[in-house]
C-alpha cells in the first residue's frame, strides 16, 4: 500500500499520520521490546523466583548460546538466505574442543574448533555461490552431514574433558554478568555496528533487498554471501566452544534444533525473511524474549509440550503483527 500513499502525497492530500497513530507505529516498530517488557512483567508477577539477580544472570548466560547463533543468522537472513546447519556446527566445534584437547592442548583445540565453524560456513557459502541452489536445501544437507560427522567423531556418546580447569576459563563474572553473556553482547554490539557503519554491513542490505541492482552496481554478491556464511559458521563455533566450557562435556546431540530457536529469535526481532531488512539489536531482543519465556515457563513447572506451544504461538503472533503493520516497509 505504500505506493498509493506516496501517489496521494503528490496530490497534496494530507498523509501526515496523527500523533496517536505515530506513537502506535513506533511501538509497533519496536514491538520486540514491548514483548520483552510484558513477558518480564508477567513472570515476575507469576513466580517469586523469577526476578532474582541469580536467575537473571543465569538467564542471560543461557540466552548467549542461541544468541550467538542468532547473530550469525541475522546476517545471513538480511542477505535473504538461511543457515540451518548452525546447530550442527555448534555440536562439531563443541566435540572438537573437548576431544582434541588431550592430544594437542587446550588452546590449539579451541583454535581448531573455531576453524571448523569457519570452514563449514565456507563450504555452505561456496556451494551456494557455485550451485545457485537455495541455501535452505544446501544447509539442510549440511545439517545432516555435519551432525553425522559429529556422531562418527564422538562415537555416539558424550565426550568428557579430562582436566576440569577447562570449565573454569569462563567462570569469570562482571558483576552478575558471565563472560559468556559478555561475549554474546559484545558480538551483538560489534555486528550491529558493522551493519550500520561498514561497507560490508550496508552491502548486506543492498544484496538482500535487490540483488540485481547490487550486482549491477558492482557489488560482488556471491563473495559477499560467502563471507556472511563464514561469519555465521564461526559464531556458531564460538557458541560451541563456550558450551563445551560450560558443560565440560560434548554431547553428539548438542544444539539440536537450536537453529530453529535462532531463526525464531531473529524473526521475532523483525528481520525480514525475504531479506533486505533486519537489525542485530532487535535480534537480541528476540533472543532475550525467548529466553525469558523458556526460563519463566520452566520455573512454573510447565510441561515441555506447553512450552513449545507457547513459543509457537508467540512466533505466529510476531509474524502476524509484522504482516498487519508492514512497518511501512515496501514489499
Amino acid at each position: 500500500m505504500s505506493k498509493t500513499i506516496s501517489s496521494a502525497g503528490f496530490q497534496g492530500v494530507s498523509v501526515q499520520p496523527k500523533p496517536l497513530r505515530r506513537t502506535f507505529m513506533l511501538l509497533a516498530e519496536q514491538h520486540i521490546w514491548v514483548f520483552l517488557g510484558l513477558s518480564l512483567l508477567l513472570f515476575s508477577l507469576a513466580s517469586p523466583y523469577f526476578l532474582t539477580l541469580n536467575n537473571m544472570s543465569n538467564l542471560l548466560t543461557q540466552a548467549a548460546f542461541i544468541g550467538l547463533l542468532a547473530i550469525g543468522m541475522t546476517l545471513v537472513m538480511i542477505n535473504g538466505e538461511i543457515d540451518l546447519s548452525v546447530g550442527a556446527t555448534l555440536a562439531l566445534a563443541c566435540a572438537l574442543a573437548v576431544g582434541l584437547q588431550s592430544s594437542i592442548g587446550v588452546w590449539p583445540a579451541i583454535f581448531v574448533a573455531l576453524c571448523s565453524g569457519a570452514v563449514m560456513g565456507l563450504i555452505n557459502g561456496t556451494l551456494l555461490a557455485l550451485s545457485g541452489m537455495h541455501s535452505f536445501i544446501i544447509t539442510l544437507g549440511a545439517l545432516i552431514g555435519i551432525r553425522g560427522i559429529v556422531f562418527i567423531y564422538t562415537g555416539e556418546s558424550a565426550l568428557m574433558v579430562e582436566d576440569f580447569s577447562y570449565t573454569e576459563i569462563v567462570e569469570v563474572y562482571l558483576g552478575p554478568v558471565s563472560l559468556t553473556a559478555l561475549i554474546f553482547l559484545g558480538f551483538a554490539a560489534f555486528f550491529q555496528w558493522m551493519l550500520t557503519c561498514t561497507k560490508h554491513g550496508r552491502e548486506a542490505f543492498a544484496v538482500g533487498d535487490n540483488a540485481k541492482s547490487a550486482h549491477e552496481a558492482g557489488i560482488r554478491v556471491k563473495r559477499h554471501k560467502v563471507i556472511n556464511f563464514v561469519l555465521c559458521g564461526t559464531l556458531a563455533a564460538i557458541a560451541g566452544v563456550l558450551l563445551s566450557m560450560r558443560l565440560g562435556t560434548a554431547e553428539p546431540n548438542a544444539g539440536k534444533i537450536w537453529e530453529l530457536w535462532a531463526i525464531i529469535a531473529v524473526v521475532l526481532g523483525g528481520t525480514r525473511l525475504q531479506g533486505g531488512w533486519g537489525s542485530v539489536w532487535k535480534t537480541v531482543g528476540g533472543v532475550l524474549t525467548l529466553a525469558v519465556l523458556r526460563n519463566g515457563l520452566s520455573l512454573l513447572n510447565t510441561p515441555n509440550y506447553i512450552e513449545l506451544m507457547v513459543m509457537g504461538a508467540v512466533l505466529v503472533l510476531a509474524l502476524v503483527i509484522d504482516k498487519v503493520l508492514g512497518f511501512g516497509h515496501s514489499k
Binding site: T198, D209, G218
Partner: peptide, 28 residues
C-alpha cells in the same frame, strides 16, 4: 526502477562506490 528500497537515498546514489576508510568503515 532498480533501487534498493530499504537503503537511504545516499546509499543508493553511491551504491557500489561508497567512500570508506582503510578498514571498510563508511565515511558517512
Amino acid at each position: 526502477l532498480s533501487l534498493s528500497p530499504e537503503l537511504s537515498v545516499a546509499e543508493n546514489v553511491y551504491l557500489g562506490a561508497w567512500p570508506t576508510n582503510r578498514f571498510g568503515v563508511l565515511k558517512k
